[in-house]
Amino acid sequence: MSATDFAIDVTGITKRFGPKTVVNAIDLQVRRGEIYGFLGPNGSGKTTFIRMLCGLLTPDGGSGTCLGYDVRTQQAEIKCHVGYMTQKFSYYEDLSIRENLDFIARIYDVPDRAAAVERSLVRLGLQNRSAQLAGQLSGGWKQRLALAACLIHSPQLLLLDEPTAGVDPKARREFWDEIHQLAADGLTVLITTHYMDEAERCHRLAYLAYGNLLTRGTLTEVLQSVKLTTWTVTGPALRDLAAALRGRDGVEQVVAFGNTLHVSGRDPARLETAIAAVRTPNHEWTRIRSGLEDVFISLMDGAKDNFA
């Protein structure tokens, strides 16, 4: 695979704020046309990493390219071909939807601006609301506007920083359909999210904690990267049961999911021993395939010991 097949190809990217290393030697390769999910707890450095990719921050260490341009020296070129959707809504609340789009189109020097603005209004279903002020829009519509704005200059790479935070499930679903459509048309998308169902819709995933990349790959690869065994249990007095399980040898995490508990550990034998000790006929135990969330929590617990 040649270098140009990667939309993003960086190694050892590091960023420090004062004494704190916020992004620690991250390697990342994203193929063109791929939807790459970026996960990790708050403060793990996702936003900082994305900002380095799009030329908003200069890395303190590491090197690499974004769309073939050097992330350290060719920030100006990168900015022309990347659409970046910030975590916080960052368009002008006192301008209308159309005025915002028009402004962005002007800044990018989009050819045939009026048509481009019209196209993006139509495609995102915003044409009836084009005169509305951006500040009056609900979360879902703001997100649509932001997406429309970062697509207006036909970028080759979309960097979306928690685009679906605070957006209702239906709008989220539509948003993801749109993202898949864009990817099918050849756009590369790097997207950060906290939702597991969204993570599962990505072609590849990376998991970040405390600035360190803990795992990456396809969904299956990520699930297999931690040899985790998970059991679920249903029955009465789950809180007491959880308390009894925590701290037992072989039990690494006990997490409540509604009316069930997920109990996971890396060593199946020790986990089963631990479970046997608390087993009662009132509870129903089932072994399940570990989910992404189980894997991530396990990764993060491991990371806490190593880095925190």
Binding site: G55, L56, T86, S90, Y91, Y92, E93, Y108
Partner: peptide
């Protein structure tokens, strides 16, 4: 303050 600076900086302006 409104966060629009980040966006402006991300453009080639």
């Amino acid at each position: 303050e409104r966060g629009t600076m980040e966006n402006l900086l991300a453009t080639p302006v």
